[in-house]
Simulated scan of single mutants.
Amino acid sequence: MSIGQSNGSGVPGQGSPARAPANVRIVDPVPFAPSPRERLRSFMRVHGRKLWWLHSAYALGLGIAVVAFAQKGFDHARWLAVSIGAAWLLVVLFFRLFGSGREQAQLHAAPAKARLRFFAMTYALKNLYQGMLFFLLPFYWKSTTFWAPNSWFVVLLGTCALLSTLDIVFDRVVFRFRALASIFHGVALFGCLNLVVPALFPDTRTLYSLLIAMGITVVGFWTIHVSVAMLRDRRWIALFFLSAAAALGGAYAGRTAIPPVPMYVSKGAVGPIVLPDGRLGMVVHELHPSVIDKLIAITDVVVPGGKGDRLVHVWRHDGDEVHRATETTSKVDGPEGTVRLRSALSGRQLPARLIGTWAIDVETQDSQLVGRVSFLVAD
C-alpha cells in the first residue's frame, strides 16, 4: 500500500493530512470578545477615579449655580427645612445600615446590592449637603465682617461645601467615620437653622435663632450616635442634658463669633455734612485731625428676616470704644426694607488724640457684629 492511500478499513494512511468530516467546516480562530459588562468593569478599573473627580467638578459647578440662585432672595430659605429633614433622616439611617470605620471597610467584599445601596445613599447625601451649604454661602458672606471674630464661620461653611463636592473624600473619609460625619452634619445643620428660623418666624431676635439652632443641632448630633437601647440608661439621658446645656452656654458666650444672618450692612459711610434728603454731602476715608469738627456716620442695614433686634452704633478708636449710640436716638428714615442708623461725634465726645484707625460698628443688642465702616485719621 502506497503512502497517502487508504487502507481497507478507510483509515487514512500514515503521513496523509487529516480531513474533516463532510458536515464540519473549519474556520480561523476567533479572538476572545468580552461581554459589555466585562468591558464596563475594565473601563471603570482604569478610569474610575478620573470619573469620580470629573463628577466632583460637575458638582462644584452645580454648587456655583445654587449660589447664583440664592442671590435671588431670602424667600427660598424656608425650603431649607425640607433638605435639613431629609439629610438628617438619611445620615441616621446610613450609619444604622453601614456602620462606621472598619465596618465600612468590608463593603468592598459585600454583595453588589449592598454596595449599590451605599453609593446611592452617599450620592443622595452629597446632593442634599451641596444644595444646603452652597445656598447658605451668599447669606453668610454678606453678614460676615471680614477680619473680625465672626469671619471664621463662613470659611468653615465654604470648606464643608467644597468637601461635599469631592466624592472620594466624602465617601472614604468624611462619612466613613461616625464622629467626623456627625461634626460635618452638625455644622451644616447649625448653619441652615440660623437662616431657617427667621425665614419661618420673621422678626425673631438673632440670639434666639442662634440658641434654637444650637439646641436642635445637639439633638441631631445625638441621634447619629445613640441607639434606642442607650436611652433606657438614665446616665445617657443625663449626659444629653448636660451636653445640651454646655452647647447652649457656649453658643451664648460665643455669639459674637457667629454672623447675624440674614442681616447685613448694604451701605455705610462717614462724613462731616448731611444733606436734606438724609445722605452724606461728603464721604471721607482719610482725613487730617485739624479739619475734624464733627463726624457723622450713616449705615443702612438690610433686614430680610424682619426687625427682631435693636441695633446700635459703636464708635471705636484704635479698637477702644469711644461712643455708643442706641437705635432710639440714631434711627432715621431710610430705604424700604432697611434700618438706617445715623450717629455723630462732635465737641466733647471727640477724644483729645484723633490720629489712628476709626471704625463704626453696627451691632445687635446682644453684641453681634452686623457690619463695619472704617476710616483713617492721619497727619
Rank of each mutant, 00 (worst) to 15 (best):
R78A: 10
N23P: 07
L60K: 04
I292H: 01
P260C: 01
L239S: 08
S143V: 08
L40E: 10
F69L: 15
P21I: 13
L97G: 02
R78Q: 08
L350I: 06
L125C: 08
G73A: 11
D309N: 05
L128M: 07
T145E: 01
G63E: 03
S227A: 09
W79F: 12
L80M: 08
L193P: 04
S6P: 05
L341P: 05
Q71R: 14
G308P: 05
G15K: 08
T165D: 00
F170Q: 04
L311I: 06
V283K: 09
S56K: 05
W53A: 04
W147G: 08
L62Y: 06
T206Q: 04
P260I: 12
K50E: 11
W147D: 13
G13M: 03
Q104D: 13
G249I: 01
W147Q: 14
P17K: 10
V155I: 15
G85I: 00
A109G: 15
A213N: 06
V302M: 01
H285K: 10
L287K: 15
R178V: 11
G319V: 06
K331I: 10
I224E: 02
V155G: 13
P36E: 09
K126N: 13
P21G: 15
L350P: 06
V284F: 15
P259Y: 04
K50L: 15
L125T: 00
A251N: 01
S2A: 13
P260T: 00
F135T: 00
S182W: 02
P304A: 14
T329L: 13
A188C: 07
A68P: 04
A325V: 04
V283I: 09
I296L: 10
L89I: 14
M132L: 02
L350C: 06
D171C: 11
T223L: 13
I183D: 01
V332A: 12
A297W: 02
S266V: 08
P29K: 02
T328N: 11
S343Q: 01
H55Q: 15
L210W: 04
V377L: 02
L354D: 04
S151L: 00
L93R: 12
K307R: 14
K126F: 02
E321R: 14
A269Y: 05
D233K: 12
F139E: 02
Y129C: 00
P34A: 09
S35V: 06
F240K: 01
S182E: 01
L287E: 12
V270I: 11
A20C: 11
G271L: 05
H47L: 14
T329V: 14
S266Y: 05
P304N: 07
L51C: 06
L350K: 04
A70T: 11
F201K: 06
I84N: 12
G308M: 01
A246Y: 03
R255F: 03
R353H: 12
T165H: 04
I360N: 09
A244W: 05
R340A: 07
F32G: 09
F240E: 00
P12G: 14
Y129D: 10
R232L: 12
F201S: 05
G215F: 03
T122D: 09
T357S: 09
